[in-house]
Every structure is written in C-alpha cells, then in structure tokens.
Design a protein around this nucleic acid. Structure first.
Lengths: 204, 204, 204, 204
DNA sequence: CATGAATGAGTATTCATTCAT
DNA sequence: AATGAATGAATACTCATTCAT
C-alpha cells in the first residue's frame, strides 16, 4: 500500500517520481519501463521509490491520476480560451475532437498511453474526463433544451465519450486507416450531435 | 516460418496446439501464457510446437484467425436462426449487441481476448466482423432506403462498429459500471439506429 | 560409428552430404551450421544423414579429410604448373605462401575453416600438407645438399609448416594487422629459407 | 554496460566472479561454461553477476585481461629470477619456451584457454606478451649488435612470437605428436636464434 | 534403407522487489 | 528515512538425435 507522504519533502519526491514515470514511459515505452529506470530518472534510489509506491502498477496509476487532473484542466482552459460554450454544439464537438486527437498525436507520453490504454488503469483518466464533459454539457442543455430528459444524458455521455475516445485513439494508433481523418471526425461529430440534439426537433 | 502441415497428423497437431493456446489463455491470461504451457496443454513437446509455429506471437495470431472464422460463422448462424433480416433495424441491432456481449461474458477465452484486444492482432477478428455487418447491412438498406448515400456508409460503419465494440467490451471488463447494462444497450442501439436511418425522414 | 558405404549409390550420397557440409559451412558459418541444414542442402533426409554419419563432428571431419586430398592435389598441380621444382628455394617458398594465402582469402569455405581451425580436426588437413611439403622438399635437398642431415628435416618441416600456416592464417583472419602482408611474406620466407639452407654455407 | 565497482565489497565480488570463470573454464571447458555455472561457482546470484558483467563474453574478456597481467608479471619475475638477460640468446629462448609450455601443460586453465585461444579475445594476452619480448629483446640487441636493422625487427618478432606460440600450443594440444618435445624446442630455438642473429656475421 | 516428425534438455538474460547497512 | 547491492524465478527458443512408419 502506498504510504501517504505528509512532509513537504516527501510530497516533492512523490511528484518527482511521477514525473519520472512519464518521462520513462514517453522515452522507452511501457514495455521497456522498469522501476529502476524510473528511480534513476527521478534521481531517487530504488529503495526510496518503494517507500512511496508499493508496486510498479501503482506508479502508473499515480501517473494517470496526475495526468487526469492536468488533462481536465487543459481541456477546461482550452474551452474557455476558445469561448467554446458560445459555439453551436456541432462546432464545439468537432473542435474538442480535433484538439484531443492533436494532443495525443503530438505528445509522446499521451501517444504511448493511448497505444496501451487497455493495459492501463485508464478509467483514472476516463472518468474525470467524462465527468468534465458532463459538467460542461449540463448548462448547455439547460440553456438550450430546458425540458430535455436528463435521465438519459448520463448513459448517452457514457456511450459517446467512450465511443469517441476509443475510436479516435484506435484510429491514431492503428497502422493502416481505412477512412480519412476528416471523415472520422465528421462522422463522430455527426454521431454525437445526432445523439445530443432533442429527440424530435419540435416543429414536426 | 511456420511449416505448412500437409499430413493429416500434422493438421491435427496444429489444431491441438491452437486449442491449447485458447485454454492457456483462458486459464492463465495473456501475460502468463508461456510457450511451454501451451506445449504442455497440447500434450506436445515444445520442439514440435516450434516446428509449426515460428513464434509465440504466431500462436496467438493463429488462435485469432481460427476464432475469427468461428465467430463470423456463429454470428451468421445466429442471424439466420433468429431471422434477423426480417426484423426492424432497431431489434436487429439490439439483438446483435446482446448476443455479442453475452458471448464475451460467458466465454472465458473471449473475455480474456477482449481484455487484451489492443495488444492482439485484433483486426484479424474485427475486419471480418465489420465486413459481415456491412454485408448484412447492404441488402437492408437497399431494400428500405434505395437512395441512401452509400458514400457515407463506410465511415459510419467504421465508427459504429468500433464504437460499439470498444464501448461494450470496456463495459464488460471494467470494474464498477456507472450505468446499467440495459441502459448501455439501449443507448448504443439508439446511437446506431440514429446514424443508419435516412438523414431526414422529414419530407418522405 | 560411421557406416562404410559399399554401394555405389551410398558412396554418392556420402559425397553429396560432404559437399553440403562445405556449402553450409561457407554460407552460414560453423556456428550456424546444423545437421538439418546439411541434410537439406544435400537433398537428403536427416535420417539418412545419420545412417552414414554418427555425429555432427563426423561431418566436419569427413569434409576436412576430403578437402585435404583436394588441397594437396591442387598444391601439387600448382607446383607442376609453375615448374616449382626448378625454382630457387626462396622463390618457391614465397610462391607457395602467396598461393596459400590467396586460396584462403578467395575461397569462402577455406576462409571459414581458417577462422575456426582450432575447433576443427585440422590435423586432417595439416598432416597431409606437411607430408606433401616433405615429399616435395626431399628431392630438392637430395639434389642440392647431398650431405644435409635429414634427421633434422622432419622437425624443421614440422615447425616451419605449422608456423607458416598458423601465422599466415591468423594474419588473414585477425582484424587489425600490425605489419603489412608483404612484410609478413618476406619474413616468413626468410625464416624458412634460413632454416632449410645448409647450416654453414661452406666457405667459412 | 559493466557497472564499475567502487566499493571494496564490489571489487571483491568482481574478483570472485573472475576467479569463478577460471574455475568453470578449467573444469567444464569453454563450450560447457554457463553464466549460471559461473555464478554458482562464485557463490553469487546470477543477477549480481549481470550487475557487473553485461555479457557472457565480458566474463571471458575479464578473465583474459586479468590473466594477461599475471602472465606478463610471472614471465618477468621468471626472467629476473633466472637472470635471463645475462644469458646467451639461445639459452634465454629455450628457457622461455620451456617455461611457457610447462605453464600451459600444468595449468588446466591455461590449457583450456590454449585449446580455444582462437575463439577468445586472445590478443589481450598475445599483445602484452609480444610487447614484453620486444622490450626484453631491445637491450639485448642494442648491447650485442649495435647496428642491427631495427626496421625489420617488428616483422620478425611478429612472425616469431606467433609461430612459436601457435606451434607449441598446437603441439601441446594435439593428440599424437610426430616429433619429440625436445626436438620441437630445439628447432624452435634454432629458428628464433637464426632469425635474430645478425644477418651475416661473416666479414665482421 | 529412407523418411521427417517429434523430442526436450539446455541457456542467456531481465527486472520487480527486498533488506542489510 | 534513504540507499543500492543483491536476489533468483521466470522464459523463449535451438538443434542434435531418435525411431515409428
């Protein structure tokens, strides 16, 4: 079990180790990441590493947890910066997908995580992201479709977030794509918008 | 390179080994599967195993190839047995999802494969399945929506097949689901049907 | 123990296998030569191979034995062709060394054998060669230095043949030579001639 | 890469491992030497062994390096002890050869190394030995033959050192010698002395 | 005699984890 | 608390040789 660091110095050490996990993961890949590599990269003895993390797995979990916060924050900042909540849903969605795919493509760490998401405690990252979208979507719907059945919303978000993430990550990671990236984004956008717009757009 | 089995006995041995791969995989998991375990389970010397499979990877590939055929066939049989092509799209989709999820849940081997599909040459299985759905969908659309834009169809199927598979597999594998299985299936079904129905039923 | 082939067909098979040993050795090197490779190259089943050769080692032995004859014959032919026995000793020796080194350098099989001579039953090749030189030298000395102590000759030839062979083979095979090839040949020649010329050339 | 031992304990461990290499080599032979054997013989875990030696080859290299120093030192001591530099060349040479052959014959490790020197990084041992002879020879020549052509000396030493080593080692290792050891030594000595004495003592 | 499918002992190397200092 | 030296189980793959057919 991981010991919870109370001291300032300890917290710094934990942070250093988690950063090191990211570095090693990005540089050597999940398969070639060893606890000793991490300790080296963190400038910490392997013994100390095991003082704070009882397990190799815990290292990765901690990284994902840490990333989760950062990613959510980044997404939030980006959404504010681009005034996303003023955009029509379709544009908002497309922008978000593009931003996400670009992030993974350009960030070696994110890419390596994407390449191995299934072996990782990915929900650490997935859940808050899902939460974030939910939070972000909530006011949107309240504003635009007051009488939209919120009940349904959770399931829809679950399905859409997972579908979009898994499909686009798989697309980025797979060798030979069978459709173009624009087609993918357009179709995903259409799918999401189709699901989130009011069931029968009224006047009918 | 894998030696191609010409003799009857050889073909039996290959089959026995592939079966053994499945057994070991189901029992010990992908990470703890050993070539020697497989040889033991097949009642075959490790040397013989390597006479027919040049690689550990080739063992898994062969299993997936073999499963791919079986799964496609089972799906086909199931679709015939249930008279699927006479059903309305919504029921057809729901039935297919239920059947697929049930298969994975009840079959330890399928479950283990699902848990690790990202590390496996999974397209071996995904592609024929996708193909199968496409073939199955084609006449459906021809019958019901003659002037449906086929152009779009490929991208839509790509997105839908991947989304449905990834999301439902993830659902089965994850620890604490946040929505019920019925909700999941209903939402996935709605998503698929929504995408595949003619764009604007309106003026029709 | 190797079975001695009496039949014509058997003798052909043995010959084919020995040739195959040479091929495989030249192509794959001693370390990567396997009995199955040899059997394949000979177009013979591995079982048949073991009918005539009880051992992997025996294969190599047989090759060396066979080569021994060929090399001795080649040397003889060469010596006749170049009218060697009419030449002064110094030129004869130099020519022989050059010819030998050239043979090894240009013949991949000879080179591979040279690279591994110590692990091989090299005497199979060394002895007849030594014999050959002795036979070749005998008349030379009888003609030129009637009262030369033949007693000594055997030891001298032993030392000279071994020294020349080992040193030049090592030279050919080593990575970074510290003297030039011409220096090597000149020095070896001088060494040999110095040893074989009458102890005190008389007038003193 | 081999970790450089800084601690006292580490240096001891490295020494113990190198000794173990020698033991295993002497007992089981080069072909049957195993990293695990060495670790066992050293009373060290296989993991520790690999902490200091990155490779099986490095083990042998380290042994040779270590032996190289010892052999050179022993030779030097021996030469001092026997007042070799006061001896006439002929006796000096004969003594050296006898001492060398005796060392190999009586030391199982040296014998095994001699039997396999071609596969070993033997220049580690050959070079310093050659150097040693050169250094030892230099003053000798300066004293006795001031105007001796040093130009030639390098090639001569190359040829003589290699010839003597290879031939005598081969003699020790071969099964059925065709000349007596005394004959061998006498002839080698004659060869060396003949080469190293001034070209034509005649008119001097 | 011929075949070639089958055998299985044997080996270098890695890496998560511990624990004496 | 920190260190890092030490551990040793675990694993894919080769190849000489056999023997049932």
């Amino acid at each position: 079990m991981r010991r919870i660091p109370r001291q300032q110095r300890s917290r710094e050490m934990v942070a250093r180790i988690i950063d090191a996990v990211g570095e090693v993961l990005a540089e050597r890949g999940l398969d070639n990441m060893t606890t000793n590599h991490v300790a080296d990269a963190a400038g910490v003895s392997i013994g100390s590493l095991y003082q704070y993390f009882s397990d190799k797995d815990e290292l990765v979990e901690a990284l994902l947890e840490s990333l989760s916060k950062r990613v959510t924050r980044d997404f939030h900042q980006q959404s504010v910066k681009l005034n996303m909540n003023t955009l029509p849903l379709r544009q908002l969605v497309e922008l978000a997908i593009r931003y996400g795919m670009q992030s993974i493509r350009t960030n070696p760490l994110m890419y390596e995580l994407a390449r191995n998401w299934q072996r990782l405690p990915f929900d650490r990252l997935l859940e808050p992201l899902s939460q974030f979208f939910q939070v972000m979507a909530q006011p949107y719907f309240l504003k635009n479709y007051q009488n939209y059945p919120v009940e349904n919303l959770q399931a829809k978000l679950y399905v859409l977030v997972h579908s979009t993430l898994f499909t686009s990550v798989h697309y980025l990671v797979q060798d030979v794509p069978t459709i173009s990236e624009d087609e993918l984004i357009a179709t995903l956008t259409e799918m999401i918008v189709g699901m989130l717009e009011p069931p029968a757009t009224g006047a009918g």
